[in-house]
């Protein structure tokens, strides 16, 4: 990059630079996205087609059998439901816990709030390995091992640690006039929280909900340890288990990878919308 990049578009040479920069960026981004294309290219091929044309040829016919076989083999619908159930429960519960904590810390300004905040920050930093063995042991003692409930409880705590940390600083700047108005109307603390604080901070809460949902959906370590039965497993876990089985052929791998990618990309698109809305309404306030 030289200073000639800063010329105004009217000057000569601008077009050449523009083409150069655009071409470079397009090639680079294309390379980053290439793995997705390779997956897409091979997810609809038959094994024969693959062994003849290799991984980079276009499929000679669109072949759905690989994907259908994979779907039935791992009962993918069930895995989707497990992932959805766990992610949605964690997201709802963790947002509720975060709001309650942050209400006390950020708006209630409890004594010792800095210590509380440091604690939540620490909880968020901990590697899960430092908790997992005692949790594994305790869950067996309490008959919660190998249930979706234990994964939901643990992940709710971990996500809410982040949520509390973030929301507390958001609530610290909550407009005092709104709180005063509620107090003048004779609203108690719980009523103020439900009628004033939650609706006003809804955009932030929806961003938080989306984060929690996606993070939980992608979570691998805890489901790996706590969900043993096939019919309890989540999408990432089912894919990883399949990967470990040697006899799986390549087009099945590609088909399974595509089934793992599609929900993630869908969330990404929804997430972008939520995030933009959240940020924008934050600016209006």
């Amino acid at each position: 990059m030289t200073s000639s990049e800063t010329v105004k578009p009217a000057k000569p040479g601008g077009l050449a630079t523009k083409t150069l920069v655009l071409t470079g960026l397009t090639i680079f981004t294309g390379l980053v996205l290439a793995p997705f294309l390779v997956v897409l290219l091979n997810a609809f091929k038959s094994s024969e087609d693959y062994s003849q044309g290799g991984p980079l040829s276009l499929p000679s016919a669109i072949y759905f059998q690989g994907m259908i076989d994979f779907w039935n083999r791992v009962e993918f619908g069930e895995k989707l439901w497990n992932s959805f159930l766990i992610s949605a429960s964690v997201a709802v519960l963790a947002v509720i816990i975060s709001v309650l904590n942050a209400y006390a810390i950020g708006i209630g300004r409890l004594r010792g709030r800095t210590a509380f905040l440091m604690f939540f920050l620490l909880a968020n930093l901990l590697p899960q390995e430092a908790l997992v063995y005692p949790l594994y042991y305790l869950s067996k003692q309490f008959d919660l091992y190998n249930t979706r409930l234990v994964v939901i409880i643990i992940l709710t705590a971990i996500q809410a640690a982040f949520g509390t940390y973030l929301l507390s600083s958001v609530f610290r700047d909550f407009p005092p006039s709104l709180l005063e108005a509620a107090a003048l109307d004779g609203a108690g603390k719980l009523r103020t929280l439900i009628r004033v604080v939650v609706p006003t901070s809804w955009p932030t809460l929806s961003v938080l909900f989306t984060f929690f949902f996606i993070w939980t959906w992608n979570e691998f370590f805890l489901p790996l340890i706590f969900l043993i039965d096939n019919d309890l497993q989540t999408v990432p876990l089912a894919l990883a288990v399949l990967q470990g089985q040697r006899e799986v052929d390549i087009t099945t791998t590609a088909a399974s990878a595509l089934l793992g990618i599609v929900p993630a990309v869908l969330f990404f698109l929804i997430f972008q919308r939520t995030l933009t809305r959240g940020v924008m309404s934050g600016a209006v306030k």
């Binding site: 904590n101 006390a104 409890l110 409880i153 643990i154 640690a161 603390k189």
Partner: peptide, 21 residues
């Protein structure tokens, strides 16, 4: 009065984070 709102969170974090750690 705000302490009460902290109760569910504190219980959860004690069980899932403090004790296991």
């Amino acid at each position: 009065g705000y302490l009460l709102f902290l109760l569910p969170g504190v219980l959860l974090f004690t069980a899932v984070i403090v004790i296991p750690l």
